[in-house]
Design a binder for these strands. Structure first.
Length: 152
DNA sequence: GCCAACGTTGGC
DNA sequence: GCCAACGTTGGC
């Protein structure tokens, strides 16, 4: 099993939004970065665990846990000219962009803030904390995952 | 292939 | 709102 961290701006899509979806599941559309796409397309497997991270908000940090509920398939929002994430260069016969479905698992008892994560020597190599990392999807190692859960 | 200009992310 | 750190685009 692999572990991941996925960022979302709560004003756009929060963990409560995920919780309120039918089957508590939603497709993770709109990723338009090749590194993040490759992780979804090639590496994210059913049952993989995901830290749900709220970015661009009052208290950026890990707010809950989700899991991969469906493995990669074409991100259809790329084909819709009305969609914010429309990509005129992508086409359904040879899709450029992929997504997975994620399912709500639980909210943490408290937000583990970015500020707190930065203080921990054990997380020095966490992708989230590496300088300048703006990827919206990042891998988490098993030891990092366990350590972070231990902070709750 | 180089690189300047531009757009986006996201913490602060 | 500011701005650093990117990734992308496009002229050459």
């Amino acid at each position: 099993m692999n572990y991941w961290l996925m960022k979302s701006e709560p004003e756009a899509f929060s963990i409560d939004d995920l919780h309120n979806r039918p089957q508590q599941t939603e497709h993770w559309d709109g990723v338009r970065n090749y590194q993040a796409r490759n992780m979804m397309r090639d590496e994210m497997k059913i049952g993989d665990r995901v830290f749900f991270y709220h970015s661009n908000c009052d208290e950026p940090g890990i707010i809950g846990i989700a899991e991969v509920a469906r493995e990669s398939y074409p991100d259809f929002t790329a084909f819709d000219p009305e969609d914010k994430h429309f990509d005129p260069k992508s086409n359904p016969d040879k899709p450029t962009w992929f997504m997975v479905d994620v399912k709500f698992v639980k909210k943490l008892s408290r937000t583990i803030s970015l500020r707190e994560l930065k203080l921990k020597d054990e997380l020095a190599d966490l992708a989230l904390l590496r300088r300048g990392n703006r990827l919206s999807i990042m891998p988490v190692t098993a030891p990092q995952w366990d350590f972070i859960l231990g902070l709750e």
